[in-house]
Design a binder for these strands. Structure first.
Length: 548
RNA sequence: GCCUCUGUGGCCAAGUGGUAAGGCAGCGGACUUUUAAUCCGACGAGCGUGGGUUCGACCCCCACCGGAGGCACCA
């Protein structure tokens, strides 16, 4: 047993032995003088005895035995660690201040020097060293501190000092266990790198990987900046239903769920569009929603079945307003998240500073591919171009769809710097208003950055007769077996019949924006709990009671 | 859905046909200014799961279960 005694008996302390009258049945190896093994461990299997978790459970039991509480209710700290650094960061090596401070956080490292132990305490704002000296808190308290484990949550009280190596520290006068960790943290240097474990146990990932934490700070800053900019422009933030009775607002397969009370199937929303535009009919004029949408499609580095969209609608504007708005929102997000509107992506500086290049789809195709194409050209000519370019097409495609195909296959991925690609073929844009100068086009643009679509916007269709016709086309396609086609939303048509003001609408994929700003290549890195298959092998057997 | 890669103690990681290195953490010991502290000592896995081949399998084969990347589709 330990040479030091302390108020909390640790495994093997005399009180425990006294409480256990049974003969010492411990294996030879554990019965030696100085063995620190809790007698309770004898009740455990070999596997449990070997496990860190079992040892921690016995620590827990010992602590409670002594009247301690490993999971107390609260701790009053008086500042965050970054506050402490701001206040005392100017101290010289060796300086001390008789200022009482109290901090709370997770114990990340321990360096035991014998009569002195250094700890590393982390809260959300930063880390600071703990200086825990027997000369200050006494040998017993020091032994208790040394009995803490990496990963435990603690609260500390102490004064401020700087070590002779210049490290700002808290000279601990007392500490309190706030929550005992039963499972060990990953390697203190290598951290957690197994991506499966990182996503499934995001709590561990966030604990040990600073990069993971940084991504979500970036995400918050970007979203907050977008909210602020929209609010400044007098947009009203709203919340619309997740459960939709009809499929619409985008072309995508929905998740279907059953609502018992109404005994009917409902869809998880695939877009925010139709409810928001109803609000324009209602006269709200400028509305936006940042929210989760759900698409029953594949998972890859750029797609997660649930993801976050911003959609904003502005009455009395058209898509040219949306171009300016998109630029300002993205620039504001970049500035807030990274401090700059220039973000490095794979060695290339992407300059998000407004204004961005604006180019029509047909002009861009001419520039990149070197062919003259237009949705108004005879379909036979369009097909000839696709043949020459080695692209395939379906017999149902018109010249517009063919034009879009060339753009998708050969142009989009070549566009690295932010570019507003405008005036899409009418054939591929069923929800946008026809172009005021060219009936084969619609007033629509996409923003391409780093070869990927970041935003999509229209002059919104508000002609109820035209809208009904398009809904009917979709419904016919759905009836013919297209799972991505939507339903006829008669209430939406009725809303338009009351009159929707002319408006521009904008959608931005928030996850992709964050990927860009955070410099990560997988959408799972910007979603806290990405969709994964069920974890195999996690069972009750992984949670032995520890011998109680 | 298809293709390729991948799964070794709590974490990181070697081994690729001869019977599981090493590091971190944890455990015991030393140390009052460390910074991934250091030093000494003891311990811990039969290699995702199930079959098969072989005298012998972490290693080869098959299936299944996770994961990653790519293709297809989409934001």
């Amino acid at each position: 047993m330990h040479k030091t005694s302390c108020t909390v008996p640790r495994p093997g302390a005399p009180t425990m032995d006294a409480l256990d009258p049974t003969p010492d049945a411990r294996p030879e190896a554990l019965r030696e003088e100085g063995s620190d093994i809790d007698p309770e461990l004898v009740e455990q299997t070999d596997e449990e005895r070997a496990s860190i978790r079992a040892l921690r459970l016995s620590k827990l039991a010992a602590l409670r035995e002594a009247g301690g509480e490993p999971y107390p209710y609260r701790f009053d700290r008086d500042r965050n660690i970054d506050d402490l650094r701001a206040e005392f960061g100017g101290l010289e090596a060796g300086e001390e201040r008789e200022v009482d401070v109290s901090l709370a956080g997770r114990l990340m490292l321990k360096r035991d020097q014998g009569r002195l132990t250094f700890g590393q305490l982390r809260d959300r704002s930063g880390e600071v060293q703990l200086f825990v000296s027997a000369g200050v808190i006494g040998k017993e308290q020091l032994a208790e501190f040394n009995d803490l484990d990496r990963g435990d949550w603690i609260g500390v009280n102490g004064t401020v000092m700087v070590t002779k190596k210049g490290e700002l520290s808290v000279k601990v006068s007392s500490f309190e266990l706030l929550s005992k960790a039963l499972r060990p943290l990953p390697d203190k240097w290598k951290g957690l790198s197994d991506v499966d474990a990182r996503y499934r146990q995001r709590y561990v990932d966030l604990t040990v990987n600073a990069d993971a934490r940084r991504v979500f700070e970036v995400r918050f800053a970007a979203v907050q900046a977008i909210r602020n900019e929209l609010a400044r422009r007098r947009f009203l933030e709203v919340e619309t239903p997740f459960l939709h009775l009809q499929q619409g607002g985008a072309t995508a397969r929905p998740f279907v769920t059953h609502y018992n009370a109404l005994n009917m199937d409902t869809y998880l929303r695939i877009a925010l569009e139709l409810p928001l535009k109803r609000l324009l009919v209602g006269g709200l004029e400028r509305v936006f929603e940042i929210g989760r949408v759900f698409r029953n499609e594949g998972i890859d580095t750029r797609h997660n079945p649930e993801f976050t969209m911003l959609e904003a609608y502005q009455a009395f504007g058209d898509y040219t307003e949306m171009m300016e708005l998109t630029e300002q929102l993205v620039a504001a997000a970049a500035m807030a998240a990274t401090g700059s509107t220039i973000v490095p992506v794979r060695g290339v500086d992407i300059d998000l500073t407004p204004s961005w290049r604006r180019v029509s789809m047909v002009d861009l195709i001419g520039e990149v591919v070197g062919v003259e194409m237009h949705p108004s050209m005879p379909v036979a000519d369009a097909r000839a171009i696709l043949d020459r370019l080695g692209l395939s097409y379906k017999p149902t495609w018109g010249a517009g769809r063919c034009t879009h195909e060339v753009y998708d296959e050969l142009v989009e991925h070549t566009v690295i710097q932010p570019t507003i690609v405008l005036d899409h073929p009418r054939e591929t844009s069923p929800l946008a208003k026809p172009h005021r100068e060219d009936p084969s086009l619609v007033e629509r643009f996409e923003v391409i950055v780093d070869g990927r679509e970041l935003a999509n916007a229209y002059s919104e269709l508000n002609d109820p007769v035209e809208q009904l016709a398009r809904f009917r086309e979709e419904a016919a396609a759905k009836a013919a077996g297209d799972p991505e086609a939507g339903d006829v939303d008669l209430d939406y048509v009725r809303a338009l019949e009351y009159g929707m003001p002319p408006a521009g609408g904008l959608g931005i994929g928030i996850d992709r924006l964050v990927m860009l700003l955070a410099g990560v290549e997988s959408i799972r890195e910007v979603i806290l709990f990405p969709t994964l298959r069920p974890e195999a092998g996690l069972s009750d057997a992984d949670f032995p009671s520890g011998g109680d």
